[in-house]
Design a protein around this nucleic acid. Structure first.
Lengths: 124, 124
DNA sequence: GGCCTGTATTGACGTTCATTGATTCAACCT
DNA sequence: AGGTTGAATCAATGAACGTCAATACAGGCC
């Protein structure tokens, strides 16, 4: 049920130069663009937010997500699939229901990628 | 030459709950999705990176950006326009050339929006 | 003025995307 | 087994997107 993520957003801490550190090479740009594209839809952003609001380790049942939108069930399922393929979330079926959660660390890694390098001497 | 940004990504520090803080309402999701959509293209990501690499207050001439891609000049101009409409960059014409820069604070605000709220007592 | 260079806009084309109804699959319950 | 519910897949359609050639615009220079 979960075998197609991207795994793009930085495995180690030091591997990822960051947007403003140096010009992105083509390959990394292509990979990261997929992640941002996944977030570049209002429905998917809300889905992400609803899932992420559960906090670290939290889960949400699809049956809670679908009725929050004026969209058909296949459409929501489609968006969830895209978020999963982007490596942002994962899911598991438990009995009748399917639960989604945010892959740990992904959002923070994305944030680190975007954040501007500190001027100097500031080591957080 | 610059009158169509979005101004979405948080004016004050405390105005923006953040992705994982609470479920996004429809309006904010729509606005933010535009920003992420702008970043959701490899060419635009590289453009952003090339511009942001100049650092705070830095600028890049279009004449430096265009030849870095195997794309026509109108295409690059189009992507730059989208980034500008998303409120990520701005530009100014000086003589024959046009210079682009990253709007101050935008990337950090975006990063703050994505980053997970600290567990407790950690005030950076 | 006229010409040249750098950049933006327009119009068109092919591709990708969001959405839906219909269907299928998975798990539970008699 | 058959029936029911929750969720994913399929097939089709209309809209949005990325790209380019052609054109228009702006500023410098002769």
């Amino acid at each position: 049920m979960s075998k197609q993520e991207l795994e793009v957003i930085g495995q180690d801490a030091t591997c990822c130069p960051g947007l403003a550190a140096a010009p992105l090479d083509e390959d990394r740009a292509a990979d990261l663009a997929k992640v941002f594209k996944a977030l570049g839809d209002p429905v998917r952003l809300r889905l992400m937010s609803m899932i992420a609001s559960r906090g670290q380790g939290g889960e949400v049942c699809v049956c809670e997500l679908t009725p929050a939108f004026d969209l058909s069930q296949p459409t929501i399922s489609h968006h969830l699939k895209l978020l999963r393929q982007a490596g942002l979330i994962d899911c598991e079926r438990r009995g009748t229901w399917v639960y989604y959660w945010v892959l740990p660390g992904v959002l923070d890694k994305l944030a680190a990628f975007l954040s501007t390098p500190q001027p100097a001497g500031v080591t957080a």
